[in-house]
Amino acid sequence: MASEDPSVKAVQVKLVLLGEAAVGKSSLVLRFVQNDFNENTSPTIGAAFLTQKCRLENRVVKFEIWDTAGQERFHSLAPMYYRNAAAAVVVYDITKAASLEKAKAWVKELQRQANPNIVIALVGNKLDLVEGADGEEASTPTEAPEAADEDAPADEDEDGTPPPPAAAPASEGPRQVSHAEAKAYADECGLLFFEASAKAGTNVQDVFTEIAKTIPLDTITPKPAAGGAQNRRSAANAAAGDASAVNLGDGAAAKKGGCC
């Protein structure tokens, strides 16, 4: 790694969260960013933006997280958020087979349309729902909790699918995507793979830590955190220079930038 100054400098990494509606994208991010659930999740219009630092042994990675809206019609807006992203977390719900299909579609799309070096992590959320041992603990809802949502496996309020398996809080009952199946798919496509629970906090930190480790930081254009003022200024100057070069004699336009 080309990390000559591992002490303070944070490397910025743009990360985008994708996945079907109600798989728990926002919950994962909240768990990671605040290590908690927020009763009143800020509504996702297009995408919510959050940041969080992740400390590794030799460096600090600052994640800039775009938590995209899961509603199908916002799909066409997603490219705006995943362009230039260095990492993507594609989330599915292990209690809903269809959500893995959607996740696969996202992976395909990312592999074709996004940054070619993008690190993709496939995350099966709601692990708490299928762990018999954690049955008791699993009584906090996963997705932005509804007031009346006391029954943990009852995720049906988040999606239209009928919830027959949810009725039984038995051990592996609600699981619809096996660990092996998803793992095999992830390996085949070269994805990082985790099963996690935003609710219980299981594996959430690991997802982001592993991404931070995996990202080839030397390929990311260093976003200046502290010492970059110069850099930025020169960029601004360059832009200003461009502008005045384009409309010569339009000096007032250039002046405007500096005086308002």
Binding site: Q12, F49, T51, A235, A236, K256, C260
Partner: peptide
């Protein structure tokens, strides 16, 4: 426009 000056310092989404 009001934030013009600061916006010219922006280098990324964040």
């Amino acid at each position: 426009k009001i934030n013009g000056e600061a916006l010219l310092e922006v280098t990324d989404d964040g």
